[in-house]
Amino acid sequence: MNDDMTHEPSDTTGPRRLTRTRDGRMITGVCSGAAAYFNVDPTLVRIGAAVVTILTSGAGILLYAAAVLLIPEEGKDVSIAQELINKQTSRN
């Protein structure tokens, strides 16, 4: 197997987490994060996302946007959505 194709998580001591990666991202890191999680090439995930978007007349864009909100960025414990919820509950 080619070393360029491996996407091993940097922290192998704990359970795997699906995160939006910083390394290899094109827009927000959703596809590269999913590729690292499933240990596949990011290009395959990006092509799959494009195919889903085309076949569902654009619903793939909504799924991508939801993933951006729900999947935490690499190095963070909570997602954007959880940060907003925490901010709102701390006000009350």
Rank of each mutant, 00 (worst) to 15 (best):
E83Y: 04
Q88T: 14
A67F: 02
L70N: 04
M5K: 06
K76R: 12
E73M: 10
A35Y: 04
G29P: 00
T19F: 05
G29E: 00
Q82L: 11
D41T: 08
F38P: 00
V51S: 08
N39W: 06
Y37S: 05
S90M: 08
M5I: 10
I27E: 14
L63R: 01
M1Q: 05
T89C: 08
P15S: 08
K87E: 13
A50E: 08
G48I: 01
Y64I: 02
T89Q: 15
A81T: 00
I61L: 13
V68P: 02
N2W: 10
D23S: 13
R16S: 11
P9S: 04
G24P: 00
I54C: 13
R46I: 12
I54E: 10
L63D: 04
L69V: 06
E83S: 13
T6R: 12
G29H: 00
G60Y: 02
A36G: 10
I71R: 01
V40M: 09
K87F: 07
T21E: 09
C31L: 13
F38S: 09
L55Q: 05
D77P: 04
G75S: 01
I47Y: 05
D3A: 14
G14Q: 10
P9L: 08
L55T: 10
P72A: 05
R17H: 07
K76L: 11
G29T: 02
P42W: 05
D11K: 07
T43Y: 09
G33S: 03
N86E: 14
E73T: 11
E73Y: 08
K87W: 10
L63H: 05
L18A: 07
C31A: 15
G58F: 00
S90F: 07
P42I: 07
G75R: 01
F38Y: 11
D4C: 13
L63M: 12
A34E: 07
